[in-house]
Design a protein around this nucleic acid. Structure first.
Lengths: 346, 346
DNA sequence: CTGAAAGCGCTTACAG
DNA sequence: CTGAAAGCGCTTACAG
């Protein structure tokens, strides 16, 4: 016997917890309790509530449900650029990790601009997110003060600062970069071009420093040249083209971010150079296209899945224990020396 | 003379509209009116309210602000795969378009699975989004019934169905694909492999059909072979490798989605074939790496920025006028015949 | 020009 | 075991 007072919503109007309560002949508070699996409720009522939920197609509004708490069950993710497949892959991993965690993921990008990163961070804070995972554009979060002030759990990934009170999850840039230089030096290279993006990024600095240190140990410090560009393909291309125009090229190029590696290849291609005989090329980041060039490009492979998993785990830990001291995780890169590297022409 | 009763929030606690009202000596309703630029308010009060907002660092909670309306000022964006740079680029454009529109963008991915697409759609509907922009995995939205039922403004992009009551913005797949075949036929190709992903996608079907029609007109219909794979790189690679293993290769491959083009290149590379002499290659979608291979890959360039702009404009129009009949936009692709295409070996 | 009151959809003490 | 009441942060009629 269904109570007739149930005001059937228009089709298109979503049922509320009150509709469910009315149909099940209980109070909204009881419905809420059952839906969240709390407290003791008579089996009879439980059954009626479930039936009503089914009949009305009721689903809780997660935003309204969180209104009374100071924090919503949302995690914000800020990446520098959606167009870079390395970050695309990272986003995909985080999305998968968020599923079933009870948190919704809201992903935004900073377009590699500190100013936009700050604005995006503030926008996420307006949403009262529970936590933020971020790949900072410049190694340090642009809206640091707000994050600290509002005590939002924050995990920095990939581009991590040297000094910080935030949790951080990164790769061993110094060592990976040094290993590449050691290999090139062993093959006989004496002049190597490093192509980083903005050196304000600590990971770029670490890669350059690791390379320089290894070059020193190999006695070829004088042969290291650093060519910094912007973080996007357009900027890296312009910078690289200008360098090739100047002539007097090195025997190897180590692209410290994938746009620079792409730019180096484009110049090799455009100028009809032979790779690896005229020029060896190695790239930091392993992007899909690197295995379809001829020859395939040697790469430092960043373990993006491990990065995402550690970062997510760390955020969950931080949400559970906000007072713990900041935590640092460093994961190792793998090196794959493919056909784009050989001894230089005698 | 600041009223002393103002209960200063803890640092980290965000000020509410009540805090602002108290500090400015007005009611919350008046603050709300001023912040939204509505109604007439005494200049004096306005000044005090602005001062209070500044002092407290107040920012409205956009989620709470929308609670009384049936729809929130959020637009949901569903793409099939973040790792595909074509969609990465699309997301970046939509993010830029959303800025300053008064809507927040929440982007999720379906991972190319209809089931996940449906779940993601329902999750967005739980948030009471005002509208949804989607690249459907199978050409038709998996959660169509819910979208229709809840009357949420929906725009389908890129992979658009033939028949639909939703707005749609796509490219002229039939014609672009036909143009490629006409060019290949003119160069003397008689056997061409088409490499689409799942043919449930209408854009894949259109590309195949456009190619077949042009082949018929050129009298080479018998030489068209269709090799469908899954939508990801792994699946496309396996499928392509198996095809190469069988031998008896065509003289040209037309990759109808970028993973297939990548897979074709990998096989050309692995088997030491000469491109374009042994095999010409053309790809649908112009991805950055296509210009750094040797030779660069001929491509059908989808105008992703135009797609995004038209789709966004259409959604805004739909939100303003929900009752208008469904609208269809078709934008044209550009063809760039690069070095990967030539006449087949005699 | 302004404020008290009710309400959005839910949850949270609290009283019974 | 259950429900009435208050509250989350805002907005929306409405009365003055």
């Amino acid at each position: 016997m269904q109570p007739n007072e149930t005001p059937r919503r228009q089709p298109g109007e979503r049922a509320t917890i009150h509709d469910v309560a009315r149909l099940a002949n209980v109070s909204p508070a009881t419905v809420s309790k059952v839906l969240r699996g709390l407290g003791a409720v008579k089996a009879d009522s439980v059954a009626r509530i479930h039936a009503a939920v089914r009949e009305l197609g009721f689903r809780v509004d997660p935003l309204a449900a969180n209104l009374r708490r100071s924090r919503r069950s949302i995690v914000g993710l800020i990446v520098p650029d959606f167009r870079n497949p390395f970050f695309g892959s990272m986003v995909a991993h985080f999305e998968r990790l968020a599923e079933g965690s009870g948190y919704r993921l809201v992903t935004v990008s900073s377009a590699e601009k500190a100013e936009r990163e700050a604005a995006q961070t503030e926008a996420l804070l307006d949403w009262r997110v529970a936590g933020i995972i971020m790949v900072p554009t410049d190694g340090q979060p642009a809206a640091e003060a707000s994050l600290v002030d509002q005590k939002v759990a924050t995990v920095l990934v990939d581009r991590v600062p040297d000094q910080t009170d935030f949790d951080r999850v990164g790769v061993n840039n110094l060592e990976a970069s040094a290993a590449v230089i050691r290999e090139l030096a062993a093959l006989g290279h004496r002049r190597i071009l490093l192509a980083p993006s903005h050196l304000v990024q600590t990971n770029m600095r670490d890669r350059v420093n690791g390379a320089k240190r290894a070059a020193e140990e190999a006695g070829i410090a004088g042969g290291i040249e650093v060519l910094a560009s912007g973080p996007d393909v357009a900027s890296a291309s312009d910078t690289m083209a200008a360098r090739f125009d100047k002539g007097d090229l090195p025997t190897a190029i180590f692209g410290l971010h994938s746009p620079a590696t792409l730019a180096a290849l484009r110049e090799v291609e455009r100028r009809g150079l032979a790779m690896p005989q005229d020029l060896s090329v190695v790239g930091f980041d392993d992007i899909e296209w690197m295995q379809v060039t001829h020859p395939p490009i040697a790469a430092v492979i960043q373990p993006v899945q491990a990065l995402a998993e550690m970062a997510w785990a760390q955020l969950m830990k931080r949400l559970a224990e906000p007072a713990e001291p900041p935590y640092t995780v460093e994961v190792s890169c793998e090196l794959d020396f493919r056909g784009s590297v050989s001894s230089p022409r005698a």
